[in-house]
């Protein structure tokens, strides 16, 4: 059964690493639904969160193939119940004709913040689980979305034991 799943990766923070990982997905016919990358507290190391879709076979193959890449220090599958995942949304919403109150009410319901107020639109910021973000976007459609930008999911395991000590990689 095809389901979404999340992979968390500890990778070398070098040019070309993203290319290798994205290349592996296309080479093996897997899809990247979302991707987030950022430096960790150790500047040599980045953490990536990749969300993909597939069955049990695809899940285990992707993780095994990723772990073979020299620049990947660790790739693990994160189960929903054992991890915390959030996504970030910036959305530009029309305000003319709606009045700010409708927009504010909607954003308050989802915990969003207004980051910028323009003449005929606002830019709002929302952080939360992917499902919340999706729901919020659906609700925003009638108000008039000018454009939006999503970060891709960020995930961390709830586990404290099998965490890779990234400071080991300081050369």
């Amino acid at each position: 059964m095809n389901e979404r799943f999340t992979i968390s990766l500890i990778v070398n923070n070098k040019s070309g690493v993203l290319n290798r990982i994205a290349g592996l997905f296309s080479k093996r016919c897997y899809n990247i639904d979302s991707l987030a990358v950022g430096e960790t507290e150790n500047p040599e190391i980045s953490r990536m969160t990749i969300v993909s879709t597939g069955g049990e076979y695809t899940r285990s193959q992707i993780v095994k193939q990723l772990n073979k890449l020299h620049d990947v220090k660790q790739a693990v599958l994160l189960e929903d119940e054992d991890s915390v995942s959030v996504e970030h949304l910036l959305i530009k919403l029309k305000t003319d004709g709606n009045g700010n109150s409708k927009v504010t009410e909607l954003l308050n319901r989802y915990g969003g913040k207004i980051m910028y107020i323009g003449e005929s639109f606002i830019i709002a910021d929302l952080t939360g689980p992917t499902k919340n973000i999706n729901d919020c976007i659906v609700k925003c459609v009638p108000l008039g979305i000018i454009e939006l930008c999503r970060s891709g999911s960020l995930s961390l395991s709830k586990n404290a034991e099998d965490v890779l000590d990234i400071n080991n990689f300081i050369i």
């Binding site: 076979y57 285990s60 193959q61 095994k64 193939q65 772990n67 073979k68």
Partner: peptide, 8 residues
């Protein structure tokens, strides 16, 4: 020796 071959 290549874990990814197991079950591929």
């Amino acid at each position: 020796i290549d874990e990814a071959e197991l079950g591929k």
